[in-house]
Design a protein around this nucleic acid. Structure first.
Lengths: 156, 156
DNA sequence: ACTTTCATATAAGCATGCTGATAATTATCA
DNA sequence: TGATAATTATCAGCATGCTTATATGAAAGT
């Protein structure tokens, strides 16, 4: 089977490289694999990756509003509100209507939420470690820096 | 604002590092940004990133069946069939029921599909280039290799 | 004071990723 | 041969990302 992209031709006539070799594709594949592992590890706790992420952010910075949470997680507020309300209905996250100031309603973790998050952290750190298990410290920071550069390059 | 994860404490008591510093999170963020750029660039052509990926795979290896396509793209066949049928309904992808062998129905691009893909490629290669615009060739391959290693580490 | 602008919350709809099902066909083995 | 296993296509349902849209307070400008 011969791909049309690999036929010899002058550069200006050549199409794009095979999908499997592109950085963007590799990035997606790796990130997807990571997400998949996370979902599998968290499922027994009744959590998804997005829910775990939201709990984690809220643990680091309690009393964030939905808008702040969304900015921190780099998702739209419409996406985060759904996850937030879901966790609130399960009693893992609390929000006090009485505290609403400027239309913004701060959220924080319940005791139950903190407990569940800590259980989840055990699973997640294992995956996080596994991802870079044969990376030296230098390689880990190199990867992080390169991803940050790539991210910056993509900014508008 | 002080995160609970950054308080000084013996290692065995310390919680996980801040979310924003974790490799998995950075990976997701970068991949998401890339996907976002892709969706924006492809929208004027009426294509999504997933549709573009499917068209690209099919251009490289025509006559793949849905199952083969899914394996190549590392997604489930249930996901790819939806995208495939959508493209088929728009006439960008063709599948001949008469050619069904072993229950498998091969797919390929219509002329229109090829044309649209080639337009899309112009946009996409620009983003792909932009991602690594200030990377030396060595840095590019280093990033690719590290992502491949991480991917392998995550494999079951 | 009135209007225009801004930030927030939240709903709704679409695409894509997943899992869980079904049905059909082929391959395999007892 | 007849039962069991594997492969394929495809449906349905759920979560999460996005965009578009609405409502409501707060702030700023004229």
């Amino acid at each position: 089977m011969q791909s049309p992209s690999t036929k010899g031709a002058p550069d200006h006539e050549k199409g794009p490289p095979p999908v499997a070799q592109r950085l963007g594709y590799l990035l997606k594949q790796t990130s997807q694999a990571f997400r998949h592992r996370m979902d599998q590890a968290l499922a027994p706790l009744g959590l998804t990756t997005a829910q775990y992420a939201l709990l984690s952010h809220l643990r680091e910075f309690p009393r964030m509003t939905n808008a702040q949470l969304a900015r921190r997680a780099f998702i739209t507020p419409q996406t985060s509100i759904r996850v937030l309300v879901g966790l609130q209905k399960r009693g893992l996250v609390l929000r006090d209507q009485a505290e609403v100031v400027n239309r913004a309603s701060p959220a924080w973790l319940s005791q139950e939420g903190i407990k569940l998050l800590e259980e989840a952290n055990l699973q997640v750190m294992e995956i996080e470690t596994r991802l870079s298990k044969d990376f030296s410290l230098e390689e880990q920071t190199a990867l992080a820096h390169q991803l940050q550069r790539a991210l910056a390059n993509l900014a508008p």
